[in-house]
Amino acid sequence: MSHTSQTISPSLPAASPAPSRLLARKALKHRGFMVGFSILLFVGLTALFAPLIAPYDPYKQDLLARLAPPVFLGGDWKHLLGTDALGRDYLSRLIYGARVSLLIGFTAALISAVIGTTLGVLGGYFGGKVDAVVMFIVSVRLALPATLVALAVVALFGGSLTVVVSVLGMLLWDRFAVVLRSATMQVRQMDYIAAAEVLGASLPRILFKDVLPNVMNQLIVVVTLEMAHAIILEAALSFLGLGVQPPTPSWGLMISEGKEMLLFESWLITIPGIALFILVFSINMLGDGIRDVTAPEGRN
């Protein structure tokens, strides 16, 4: 038959773009992802350029201008969001506080990602005894109440930024371990792992080139969840006076310092509270968005 020549050299389909381009296109269409991403980007840029944006030094006290109300409650434009009990500009403190929240959220999530991913991938890939050990460690961690342990450690070692970040990082890895373990178990079954093995790839090579890239989606989603979690925990610790210590501007600390004024100057609490809510909300939106965008069928 003469048709063989035509079917045997099929040209590549012109209309299928690279997976990364497809992903970007899907992400741009996803409303939740875009909203979350934009807010996070905004907060991130604000934190990064805080010294340029902030109208005042966040530490500078001005006792003559104590408790000035924000503009929308009848204050003047000199202090957009008013001042706190020591006369420090609230907007500046809010802007600098974003640095603390993001730094803690990001670093703590990073530390726990490293710990949890290592454990989860190893357990999922090898199974058997390795997996039993990993699951035991996860169970031990789950038996510890995170907030209590964090409180105890901070109380013992003092509340510096480093201590808070490391404690949170070492307490929040359980979800990474559990999620990545099951994701790895699935990937482990795929023929491409067997193919890599057959092609003589070493174990680290298989883990880094074949397993890790294929569980990356799940990893990123958990990172966003835990980042939000860490930010909330830091705020809680600071509120209890055991997190970041004054005078460092932290949103949790600002809420804590405002609590005595709750009945008379409630905006002292609501402003950092709303900021915290928006940040955590946007991170969660972003996480959900990433999950949807990277889902194989594009489920919405």
């Binding site: 997976p19 795929m190 491409y192 080139k209 890239p213 294929n214």
Partner: peptide
Amino acid sequence: YGSLNPRR
């Protein structure tokens, strides 16, 4: 579909 690593 399963024998080629989709990420490489």
